[in-house]
């Protein structure tokens, strides 16, 4: 898959996972993280990543990374 569309997809899936955590895991108690708060952060990060991928997708040809 094209890297830019891969970024959009990864961001969208991250945001969806965040939405599910925020919406459905509100009362769950865990030792390391609070799922609802983690869900909000994942939604923001996923949306930002998807937006970044979308901007790159419409912003011209992909630059090859030097190896």
């Amino acid at each position: 898959m094209n890297t830019r569309y891969g970024t959009v997809l990864t961001g969208a899936l991250t945001a969806l996972a965040g939405l599910l955590l925020w919406r459905f895991a509100g009362g769950v108690d865990l030792p390391v993280i609070t799922p609802s708060r983690a869900g909000v952060v994942l939604m923001v990060l996923g949306a930002a990543e998807a937006l970044f991928g979308a901007v790159r997708a419409v912003g011209g040809p992909e630059r090859r990374r030097p190896r």
């Binding site: 993280i33 609070t34 708060r37 983690a38 909000v40 952060v41 994942l42 990060l45």
Partner: peptide, 10 residues
């Protein structure tokens, strides 16, 4: 890093 952002929100 993601967990750090979650902690920062508190």
């Amino acid at each position: 890093g993601i967990h750090g952002l979650i902690a920062l929100t508190y």
